[in-house]
Every structure is written in C-alpha cells, then in structure tokens.
Amino acid sequence: MGILEREIAIYRLLAQRIGGMSLVTSGGEEEMAFQEKLPGIEILYNRWGLSPNCYSLLAPILHSHALRKATVYKTNQLDGAWTAILAAKLYHKPVIVRAGYLWAKNFLRQQGKGWKTNLINRLERFSFKQADGIIVTTKEMKRYINGMYDIAPGKITVIPNYVDINLFRPIRSIKKIMGRVCFIGRFTSVKNLKLLIESISPLKGVSLTLIGDGDERVFLEEMSRNLHVDVRFLGRLENQYLPEEINQAEIFILPSKFEGHPKALIEAMACGSAVIGTDVEGINTVIKHNVNGLLCQPNVKSVRQAVTELLSNPQKRAVLGHNARQFVSTHFDLDVVVEAELSALKNIVNQHIK
C-alpha cells in the first residue's frame, strides 16, 4: 500500500517482465502523477476520499474488478497487509507479505508496551500466518520471524532493498564541498539527528545537509541555531535530485538507534560516498568497519571521532567509497533484486496451482 517514488524503478521492470500490474495505493488522486512513469501499470487509488482505515478494509471490494483478474497479491510493507490478505480470501488468490522492517518490534522500541503495541503485534502475527509467502530484507529479520511467530524458514525469502546503480552513482563532474556531511531520512527520534548535530557542533568548517522531514524538524532547526551549527534543511527531494546532493558531500552519515535495511545508506554507498553508521541492528550488516565505511557507537564522542577521522583523510574516504560502490553493485543492484522478486512470485503461484 502506498506508491513511493523510490519504488518506481522496480515496479516498472516487474511489470515489463510479467506483462502487467495493478498497484493499490492508500493515496488520493495525486498518485496519478506517477502514471506516466509507470507504463503498463494500473494505479488504483483512494478516489472516494475515505479514511485510511476504512479504505484499507473496503479496498478489496472497491477495486474488485482489477483484483479478481490478478494472479498473485504482494504487499509493499506490513502496514496495510490485511488489505491484500482480505482480497486473497475473497478471490482465492495467493498472497506474499513483504516486511521491509519489523513493525511490532520497532513500535515497541519507540512507544513501549501498551494496547497499541499488542494490537500491532497481533496484526503482524496474523499477516505472517495468513500469507502464502513472506519477503524480508535481511537474514536477521528472517530469524526473528521464525523464532517469534513460529513461521517455517522455507516460507520466508530474503530479498534486500534495491538500488538503481545507474541513477545513484559517483558523479565526477560534481565538486565535493569541503566539510559537508549529508543525511537523508525521516526527522524522528529513531534517526538520532539530535546526536548528530550535537556531535559536530564544535567542529570548525563542518556543515550538515539534512534531507527529509518529520516531527522533529522545528526542534532540530532551533537546536542548530542555538549551537551555531551550519545546517541546510532541504525538506523532501525527488529521487532524481538525491545523487547530486550525496555527491556534493564528503561524508554520508546515518546515526540511527536501529534500522531495517536502510535504503538511503545503500543509495549513498552506490554513489561512492564515504559512509558512517552507528553500530546498531540494520546498519552493521551493511557497513563493514574500515572496509566499506566506518561504524561508530551511538554517542557524541564516537560520532565526532568518526566524522573527524574521515574529513581529515581524503585517501581513506576514496578507498571506502570505492569499496562501498562495489559492495552495493554486487549485492543490491536493481536487476539482481528484480530476478529474486520474480522467482519468489513464480514459486508462490506454482505452489498455489498445485
């Protein structure tokens, strides 16, 4: 549910390979702006202006004409997976539930125990149990689901997030801006941007580019002014403009408290950036310390040391950036991920026919 601009490339290639596709999105008519970029794909949006919860329950009926013709359903995330599961029950189709992150586990970390956490846990369990197949982005997620919900390992396929390495690439014509550090993502407590601003505040000649938006934006803007940190708040940018911003920076940093399989990080690595990430779940499986990036602890001293080390060593930045590009090209290239997605879809359809 939800058409994201950053997912257009994979949908376009999948549609070409399987001969057509329908995308059910919770968005409104504005989603039709993507139609020109998605030839051969039917966009089914919330044309009735229903509330998200109401629409998610009624979508299988409202879009029955297209859903009846489908061969298999696949969700983009866990949130809203029940829409596909309801449709699968109504029209007797197989369904694949994709989890780019662990919804219940992450919610518990952020909100603690309570009725909402219990509800999300039950919805997650229900979705995994009812699915014919499950796609996750990391081996760690597969192990967690297997242990937490007693889901057979054979039902779970690991397919990482992809990167369009033709779009996200080193751009030699762009000159690096000395001392520039870049971050892309949501401005929420999980991303730990307060820590990042505090860490670089005493460093002379260092500036931050923060791309994204979220609940903490006003707080972060005020904090950066109070600490006299040079921060550019660019808001959300279209995907096509991200490589230019990444290539202008000498460092890309992701100081999160935890991650799933961070797309912004692997996109920066595809650009040949020297990357820094906190040594936490989801990041330390992508960054190999001193090989394709630096890992640091989620505290001011460690983040500051990592930033200082890379800014003062252009040769190391070049080596890490080269290795990062090679790593992403090998493991997360769009073409590789498309083949894995096609294989998963074919397997589920064949099992359903039997």
Rank of each mutant, 00 (worst) to 15 (best):
G147I: 01
N247Q: 03
V319M: 08
G277E: 07
L203F: 03
I251Y: 11
G321F: 10
K69V: 05
S199M: 05
K142V: 06
L342V: 15
I200C: 02
A249M: 11
K116I: 02
T278H: 08
N46Q: 01
Y73D: 09
V95K: 04
E5N: 11
T278Y: 08
I43G: 04
S329H: 06
I61T: 14
R68N: 04
N106Q: 10
A264T: 14
D150F: 11
P153R: 04
L234I: 10
F332R: 12
F258V: 02
I10V: 15
R98C: 06
V206P: 09
R122P: 03
S51W: 00
Y101P: 01
I43Q: 01
E341P: 05
I177Q: 14
L210K: 11
E245W: 08
G214R: 09
G49K: 00
V163E: 04
I177N: 09
D79N: 06
S127F: 12
M148R: 15
I283F: 05
L14F: 09
Y91S: 06
K155F: 13
K142R: 15
I287H: 02
N118W: 10
S189E: 14
V280W: 00
S343F: 12
Q16H: 08
R180V: 02
F187Q: 08
F252L: 05
I61C: 14
Q326C: 10
H65F: 10
A66D: 04
L242V: 14
R304N: 11
D213N: 14
T188N: 14
F332V: 03
A59R: 01
W82K: 10
F183Y: 14
N290A: 15
W115P: 00
G277C: 05
L4A: 14
T71C: 13
I174P: 13
G260D: 00
G28K: 06
E250G: 08
G147N: 15
A88D: 10
Q240L: 03
R317I: 07
R17M: 04
A15E: 07
G154V: 07
A99N: 00
S199W: 02
G49Q: 01
V24S: 08
F233G: 08
H63I: 01
N292A: 11
P94Q: 11
A344Q: 12
F332S: 13
Y149I: 02
A104N: 00
Y73F: 14
S201R: 03
A268H: 13
L203N: 00
V280K: 01
E245S: 07
L220H: 13
N121S: 12
I174R: 03
A99C: 09
R109S: 12
E341H: 15
V336P: 05
S201N: 01
K105D: 12
K288N: 05
Q16I: 01
Y91G: 08
E244Y: 13
